Simulated scan of single mutants.
Amino acid sequence: MSIIELEGVVKEYQSGSETIEALKGVDFYANRGEMVTVIGPSGSGKSTMLNMTGLLDTPTEGIVRLEGVDVSALSEDELTEKRRSGIGFVFQDFHLLPMLTAVENVELPSMWDTSVDRHGRAIDLLKRVGLEDRLDHLPSELSGGQQQRVAIARALINEPKILLADEPTGNLDQDTARTILAELTRLKTEEDIAIVVVSHDELLMEYADRTVELIDGVIT
């Protein structure tokens, strides 16, 4: 069974008197242990699709299922809990807090849960992404690639079922981008998670198990 599934998803926005159809009947799924890359030009609807996959937005029409369950009837609090416990997010701009160390940034999403050893898991995750010697460094003391690895470790702290990455290599040179993509490829198997990456960078196709192309709100 797919971890996440979009069925016939349409998303419309109002811009003045004009209706903009960002997604036009999208069907999509992702399974545990695979990386799916969604490519397409700017304005094709990739970010809107990622928001649907991450339960950050609701479709105008269609169904979003998480582990086979239609989430349309869930309350906002229930959706928040699903995102917190089941979905990790990695962004192009890292979004690390500048006053916190690497290990503190990784711990942040799990600070609500006192029943787990979040500090130990944060250290373990940073070691797994090759940053065991950067635990106490601030973001300003890390390279772009190192900051992205911290962001990946942070996204994994709550043991999500899905990792969503929005242009994760957009601010990186090609060598560093390849290092990050190789890291994601390894982690999808080790953590048994589904990874969905949206990008206009065709380099990601080399690392994906599947690639889908989104053009003008339609998967081709």
Rank of each mutant, 00 (worst) to 15 (best):
A155M: 04
G43F: 00
T80D: 11
L164M: 04
T19P: 06
G217V: 03
E34I: 10
H200N: 10
V90Q: 09
P139G: 08
T169W: 12
A22H: 11
L181E: 09
D136N: 15
Y13L: 03
G217N: 08
E34M: 05
R186H: 04
E5H: 13
E81V: 09
R65P: 03
G217H: 10
R210H: 15
L163S: 04
E159L: 02
L187Q: 06
T211W: 00
V212Y: 13
I193K: 11
E104N: 02
P41I: 05
R118K: 15
E159S: 04
T101H: 11
V90I: 09
V197D: 12
N31Q: 13
L100H: 10
R128V: 01
M52V: 13
P98R: 04
L23I: 13
D27V: 05
S199H: 02
K188V: 13
K188N: 06
T53R: 07
L156V: 02
N31G: 14
E213T: 14
L203I: 07
V9I: 13
I157D: 02
E5N: 09
V26D: 03
V71Y: 08
V69K: 12
D216L: 00
L66R: 13
G130M: 01
I193M: 09
L74Y: 12
A122M: 11
P41Q: 04
D113T: 02
V69Q: 12
V36Y: 12
L126M: 08
K82F: 14
K46D: 13
E7I: 09
M35P: 15
E21S: 12
I215C: 14
S143Y: 02
D77C: 12
V10E: 02
L156Q: 03
I215P: 11
L203T: 01
A22K: 11
V196D: 07
G33V: 12
T58E: 04
G8Y: 00
Y207I: 04
S115I: 01
G25S: 11
D93Y: 13
K161H: 08
V150Y: 01
S140V: 10
V103E: 14
T19F: 10
L108V: 00
D136T: 12
L97R: 00
E159C: 05
A155L: 05
L204V: 10
E78N: 05
A122I: 14
M205Y: 09
I219G: 06
P160H: 05
S15L: 08
T179H: 10
L50K: 01
L66K: 07
L100F: 09
G54L: 05
E78R: 06
K161A: 05
L23M: 10
D133F: 04
E191V: 14
K46G: 07
L100S: 07
R149K: 05
D216Q: 12
R178T: 15
P98S: 11
S17Y: 08
V150E: 06
G170S: 01
A73Y: 14
L172E: 05
L142H: 01
T58V: 09
V212G: 13
Q147K: 15
H95A: 12
G33N: 10
T220A: 13
G40F: 13
L135K: 08
D93Q: 12
Q147C: 03
T179P: 01
T60F: 03
P139W: 00
H119W: 08
